[in-house]
Simulated assay, not measured.
Amino acid sequence: MLDQLRAMGVFACVVEKSSFSGAARELGITTSAVSQQVRSLENEMEVTLLHRSTRRLSLTEVGQAFFHSCQEMLAAAERGKIRINELRDDLVGDLRISTTPELGATHVVPALSHWISAHRGLNVFFETDNKCVDIVQEKIDIAIRMQAKLEESSILAPTVLARVDQVLVASPSYLNQSMPISRPEDLLNHELIPINSMKDYPHLSFEHGVTKEAITLDMKHRLETNNVFVAKSLCQKGHGIARLLYLDVQKDLINGSLVEVLPAWKLPTFLLTATTLKRELQPMKTQRCLEALKQYFSQLPGGRVYQEAS
């Protein structure tokens, strides 16, 4: 098929240049190669496309009809090339972003809101789920997730947007009515409100910020959820202690509706990542979207979110 399409392009060039030699110069091949291409078309279709004479070339009736078809083919190919260049270099077409419902509503939409408004040629699809998606299978351009560590992959390229602390939080009323908490072991007298989509969610690993003392423990619980907003609401209503990302409770800590528990003891840091397919040339829309995300997360206020060093 490709050989036939190439031969059709050569034939159209011969007609436009009115000579085999002119077509050869235009295409950068020999005159004999041009003649061979046209002859192969005629043999394959069992027709005569050109009347050849020592002075000039002329199209047969069949050749005239075929020439129009070749022109349409070349025009379609050129339109396809232009469209590919647009999709590669311009901010047009579809952009599919996968993230969690909480990250999407709280941060991804605010991060990209002005950027989306500025690029009306983009159709942006937000796919939200707490489960990790198959980027290839679901045709996702950018997947935004929290990760405990970067995972190596031959096909995926993660970009770190920010390092985010985990914090233990509780409501002031809960802390006032419960046993005091001065060390991690004291938590065993309390109940955790875990988010079960987190790996090893009842397991807590602490390190003291100054002494570097390390303590691990497993907390009991009778309430659990797969949603950050629900866990925070339960916590605010005084039902226990929640392990949440600082991004999700920063405002609540500032306004006093939640209080950080054991602030001197640090939980492992999470990485907020934007993952794309690993490829030599990313589409411009993907590159620009990543830049908008990096800018947003680098400017978030608060001492617990740090921009990834380049």
Rank of each mutant, 00 (worst) to 15 (best):
L247R: 01
A170W: 00
S153D: 13
G63Q: 14
S171P: 04
V228R: 02
H119N: 13
S53K: 05
P268T: 09
F297I: 05
Y296A: 00
A118Q: 12
S40M: 12
P158E: 02
E138A: 07
A309Y: 06
V109N: 03
E16N: 05
V47M: 04
R145C: 01
E191T: 11
L175A: 01
Y201G: 00
P110A: 13
L27K: 05
D252Q: 11
P180E: 10
F66D: 07
T99Y: 02
M1Y: 08
K212M: 07
K199S: 05
R79F: 10
E191S: 13
Y174F: 11
R83V: 08
K285W: 01
E127Y: 10
M179S: 13
L192T: 03
D134C: 06
L234G: 01
V133H: 09
L187C: 03
G121N: 13
K212L: 13
R79S: 14
G22Q: 07
V38S: 08
A76H: 10
L5I: 05
I181G: 03
K220I: 01
G63K: 13
G256W: 04
C289M: 01
N189I: 02
R183S: 12
I116M: 15
N189W: 15
E151R: 09
K81Y: 15
I254K: 12
F67W: 14
V136H: 09
V124C: 04
S233K: 14
E260W: 04
L253N: 03
T99F: 02
L272Q: 02
R56L: 08
L103P: 00
Q137E: 10
P158G: 01
L277W: 00
T30S: 15
K81S: 13
S98Y: 11
V169A: 09
I254V: 12
I29G: 14
E260P: 11
M219I: 09
A292T: 06
K220M: 06
S257Y: 01
K232E: 12
L91I: 06
D165T: 02
R55F: 13
S58R: 14
S18G: 07
S257D: 08
T275V: 15
V210R: 02
I155S: 10
M198A: 09
S173T: 10
P301T: 05
I144R: 03
K139R: 04
R79D: 15
A214K: 15
G80S: 12
N196L: 08
S35L: 06
G240A: 04
K81W: 10
T128I: 09
I144N: 00
H190G: 08
G256T: 04
S58G: 10
L293A: 07
T159N: 11
I181Q: 06
L49S: 05
Q166E: 10
S40W: 05
E213R: 02
V34H: 05
L87Q: 11
I142K: 02
G104E: 07
Q307L: 00
V108E: 06
G9A: 11
R304G: 04
D218K: 09
G22A: 08
L247V: 11
N227L: 14
R163H: 07
L175N: 04
T106W: 03
S113M: 12
T275F: 05
M146C: 00
A24F: 11
V261C: 08
K237A: 10
H221D: 02
S113L: 13
T286E: 14
P202A: 03
G240I: 09
L281V: 12
L245Y: 11
A292E: 06
